[in-house]
Amino acid sequence: MARVHFTGNFRQLAGGDEEVSIDASTVRELLLKLGEHYPSLAPHLDEGVALAIDGVIHQDALFSRIEPHSDVHLMPKIAGG
């Protein structure tokens, strides 16, 4: 089970939870299960989401691998100038 931490306003949308354990092997699977677990979070998972998987930020990467003991942070997408 990957440990998913909520950063920023995602925590609010996850009903105040700081983290949750999710069984998923890809980003897509993880987002799907997160949406099922937290219906109020679901609409926010399509756009504007980045995942830090074991410290490495992944954006728009539905098929990035998530390992069984990965530490995942859900955070807003980053761009820049």
Binding site: E47, G48, D60, K77, A79, G80, G81
Partner: peptide, 8 residues
């Protein structure tokens, strides 16, 4: 909302 240079 769509991703752009800076934010959405």
């Amino acid at each position: 909302f769509v991703p752009a240079g800076e934010m959405l």
